[in-house]
Write a protein that binds this DNA or RNA. Structure first.
Lengths: 204, 204
DNA sequence: ACCTGAACACCGTTCAAGT
DNA sequence: ACCTGAACACCGTTCAAGT
């Protein structure tokens, strides 16, 4: 006797995302998700291969959320201002979604290996901005420098690693300013020729 | 009837460290450690409060190892060269000890909250070098920028996050060079007055 | 077709019982 | 004094049995 479905993949991912946001990645268990959608853990395996697959689905959701946030942060006229805006938007997003940040940047199973489409575009805003600052020759290197710094900074911050006093906001602002200049081929250049279309897309 | 001890705290920490190095942080379980020292899991609780406490002891061991590596990397005459040396030594150390890196930089329970003495000095070499480059005014901000970048870069690298091609070594070298200049108060300055003794000690 | 309880192999942790 | 098996509350995962 066929039985009507009592839940769906979408609902499962949504529930997982909610648990991640509210209680952190360690609370994101199959049993917890199952109860949250009103079903028992074994039933989840009808919709999802295993926990890692579910976590990756949630990560794809999170990364697209991050992408929207970052591209919403750029104005487009002043690349140095855009870099600042992206960096601060990234940090603010991470503070709002510590679980999502931890998942994407230090707990993703087989980390960062989302389906190509999933991450595509999440960092386009950054690539375009970096391209405008640094010129086409070293976009990749410069982008990696920026992302590494931002991810490292926020990761340490969220982990409570900055314990020597001083103002963490100041240190972050210091970083953006110095890095902005550091990756600029010509620090005083404005409106360079490289546009979003030339930037690499997806991942880092 | 009193029984002679069959293991010791030192042996337990040593065994844990070995498991961490060889099999990664997820393999570092109480049962695994217990078997490795020839005892059952419950016996470990005679020497260690719980798993987190054991992990912290191992982390202290790892961080001191990192400290030795980093201070061994500096020559002391040219701060910019020292920065390069420290950065590359850090990265090489992480490649040799991915488990240790992951533990220190993204999995430490109540992260980075080692006993003050444990982390003390691990980054002294870096603080001294940064102080020499950047002057006393922004040592803390500059150090945080460097450490965040290095930790973020290596973390992404070990997680397999650099998937857009390009040479990762090149991106790392690019980062050190640009950051070295970026945090310098006077890019061409040599032999500044700030010495190791003035640098903050411990943590980041 | 979908869902479930029971089972299995793991965790960390406690504790009474053994020496 | 130290070590242990058994137990408890959790994991993820499989699968036969139920509807």
């Amino acid at each position: 006797v066929p039985t009507p479905p009592r839940t769906s993949l979408e609902e499962i991912v949504r529930a997982g995302r909610a648990i991640l946001d509210r209680e952190g990645i360690d609370a994101l268990t199959m049993q917890r998700v199952a109860v949250s959608v009103g079903v028992r853990a074994p039933s989840l395996y009808k919709r999802v291969r295993d926990r890692d697959a579910l976590v990756r689905l949630i990560a794809a959701d999170v990364v697209s959320d991050l992408g929207v946030t970052l591209s919403g942060a750029v104005a487009g006229d002043d690349p140095l201002a855009d870099l600042r805006a992206i960096a601060h938007a990234f940090r603010a997003w991470a503070h709002r979604h510590p679980g999502g940040f931890e998942l994407l940047f230090s707990r993703l199973p087989d980390a960062w290996r989302l389906e190509p489409d999933a991450g595509s575009g999440a960092l386009d805003a950054l690539f375009a901005t970096v391209a405008a600052l640094t010129g086409p020759a070293s976009v990749l290197e410069a982008s990696r420098t920026i992302v590494a710094w931002a991810a490292g900074f926020v990761g340490m911050e969220l982990a409570g690693a900055f314990r020597l006093g001083g103002d963490v906001d100041t240190a972050f602002a210091f970083g953006v300013e110095r890095l902005g200049v550091a990756i600029s081929s010509n620090p005083s250049a404005v409106a360079p020729e490289a546009g979003p279309g030339n930037a690499p897309t997806g991942y880092f």
